[in-house]
């Protein structure tokens, strides 16, 4: 299971890097979304995938899953949700204002001001 997860995480990171290296702002934002998904899956996998039962105390169960990575991931998901939403609003506003979503035109050197 860990092997499959590693491949999935690697694929997510790969796709994220590919998207973030493109010029279009929207693709970059989708890339950051994939990047944080990859990071969350990694956190889950590194916490250990053994443990059959949900981490709620019930009689006759001893092999609980580790609750801590789950709590951490929930926190991280909430945060990345907020940041991505903010980023989207910002991208929309700057598209209106700067009239481009091409990062090449947003360099901000003297000739592009």
């Amino acid at each position: 299971m860990e092997i499959i997860m590693s491949f999935v995480i690697g694929f997510l990171f790969m796709a994220a890097v590919y998207l973030m290296l493109s010029k279009s702002l929207l693709r970059i934002i989708i890339g950051t979304g994939l990047l944080s998904h990859g990071a969350h899956l990694l956190l889950l996998t590194m916490g250990g995938l053994d443990g059959d039962a949900p981490p709620v105390v019930s009689p006759g169960v001893s092999n609980y899953a580790d609750p801590l990575p789950q709590a951490l991931i929930l926190t991280a998901i909430v945060i990345s949700f907020g940041v991505t939403a903010f980023f989207l609003v910002l991208a929309y506003r700057s598209y209106q204002e700067l009239e481009t979503d091409n990062m090449n035109l947003m360099r901000g050197t003297e000739d592009h001001d």
Partner: peptide, 14 residues
């Protein structure tokens, strides 16, 4: 900062 935050999560996971 988003990239560095993702890296932070990864590092904490390790």
């Amino acid at each position: 900062n988003v990239i560095s935050s993702a890296l932070f999560v990864v590092t904490v996971a390790y």
